[in-house]
């Protein structure tokens, strides 16, 4: 089963408060100049993004040692940390999500003019937006699965929690070619840059953990729940 979503920007609007938190100014103490630049970028960001994403749902099984996941005859070897979270899954949703290449091109335009601050804000806004887009898709998947009395897990991505980024090559085989316009580089990175991918476990016995970041040792990770 394949689902694809084109998300309207109004549903994933990035707000000043989203970026303040991401950058580090959580106490509302952000200098006015930075606030103005963020607002300037956010006022125009809609014209530089195309939020889209989707997933395929695949029957899942595990090898006897529970460290490998089998989906559509492909064997995946995420870290024990991830397989422990997915092990009760009956199905696996392989997802991708992107906001397109426009935001990176916009950030690069600023960079070419020597404007590192605008470029940085664009980059951060893009990171926040792609996650918010996937949040919508994730939430919709949850509703669809709830109709079948199934639960879903958090999302887990190659490159994080010790899951090799090289496994993207197999993950993409679970999706139609060029799905959502995302392609992989020789080193298994996604193009457009502001894209994310991964697995979501589905099953009666799986659960969503609100504070999964506690399990990861990347204390300085920008995505870490504060």
């Amino acid at each position: 089963m394949i689902e694809k979503y084109n998300i309207e920007y109004e549903k994933v609007v990035v707000r000043l408060s989203d970026l303040e938190r991401f950058i580090g100014y959580s106490g509302g103490d952000i200098p006015d100049l930075f606030k103005d630049i963020i607002n300037e970028i956010l006022a125009d960001i809609e014209n530089h993004v195309n939020p889209t994403g989707g997933y395929s749902i695949n029957e899942a099984s595990f090898t006897s040692n529970k460290n490998e996941i089998v989906a559509d005859k492909l064997i995946f070897t995420p870290s024990q940390l991830i397989t422990a979270r997915l092990k009760k899954s009956e199905k696996i949703a392989a997802f991708v999500c992107t906001i397109g290449k426009g935001i990176t091109e916009w950030a690069n335009e600023f960079l070419k003019k020597g404007d590192t601050l605008h470029s940085y804000i664009c980059d951060v806004a893009g990171s926040v937006l792609v996650e918010k887009t996937m949040d919508i898709i994730h939430a919709d998947l949850k509703l669809k699965m709830a109709d079948q009395d199934l639960r879903i897990t958090n999302r887990y991505s190659p490159g994080y929690c010790d899951w090799s980024v090289a496994e993207q090559q197999k993950l993409f085989k679970l999706l139609p070619e060029n799905f959502c316009g995302i392609t992989l580089t020789e080193t298994s990175l996604m193009n457009p840059i502001k894209s994310i991918s991964g697995f979501i476990g589905i099953g009666k016995g799986v659960k969503f953990s609100k504070h999964d970041c506690e399990l990861c040792n990347m204390e300085n990770c920008v995505y870490r729940n504060k």
Binding site: I23, G24, Y25, P31, F34, I37, G114, T116, L117, Y120, I121
Partner: peptide, 17 residues
Amino acid sequence: ANEVFVPQVLMSAKAMS
């Protein structure tokens, strides 16, 4: 020391350059 964040460092680097 987390007393300033990336935007402030970027402004300093711009002043320097």
